[in-house]
């Protein structure tokens, strides 16, 4: 095989995939263009804005500064995997909707991941802990208050697995 290409096997939202990729392809581009999962957004493409955040083996990670080859064998969760297309929204999404945690929604898939990570790790986080968890994500619309409120409500409503 071309030395700039490799085959990767990975699981995304519970589905297994095997694909050949150019090794310089970012995980974000792979998810969006090779798998058609456009819910993961790209803002800055150099690790600053957080729009591209996904779960990588249960930890939040920026997919624009990971390469698809690095995900060989990994388990990835994107916004599409939070709930089924027909199903009700995930409790965190529902809380974002209720508390105006989004306006344009561009940043939202990225915010959901550290929110999920925080709530899985911790019950009853303080406002400071919530703000810290999402501190690496930028939102140009909401002013963050609604997002913090949403995560607080999701903490109360979501019966965690």
């Amino acid at each position: 095989m071309d030395r700039h290409r490799k085959t990767v096997h990975l699981t995304v939202n519970g589905v297994e995939y095997e694909r050949e990729v150019e090794v310089r392809k970012t995980l974000a581009d792979f998810l969006r263009y090779d798998l058609g999962l456009r819910g993961t957004h790209l803002g800055c493409e150099h690790g600053v804005c957080g729009a591209c955040t996904v779960m990588f083996n249960d930890s939040s990670a920026r997919s624009c500064i990971l390469y698809a080859v690095q995900a060989d064998g990994a388990d990835i969760l994107t916004v599409e995997g939070l709930t089924s297309p027909e199903g009700p929204l995930h409790p965190i999404q529902e809380a974002f909707r209720k508390h105006h945690g989004l306006q344009c929604g561009f940043c939202t898939p990225g915010f959901l991941m550290p929110a999920l990570e925080l709530l899985v790790e911790k019950h009853g986080p303080t406002e400071k802990e919530i703000r810290n968890a999402i501190s690496g994500n930028l939102c140009r619309c909401t002013g963050y208050a609604g997002i913090v409120e949403a995560i607080r409500e999701a903490d109360a409503m979501w019966e965690r697995p």
Partner: peptide
């Protein structure tokens, strides 16, 4: 940085 960056 931020928690997500420190994860990796």
């Amino acid at each position: 940085g931020h928690p997500t960056l420190r994860n990796r």
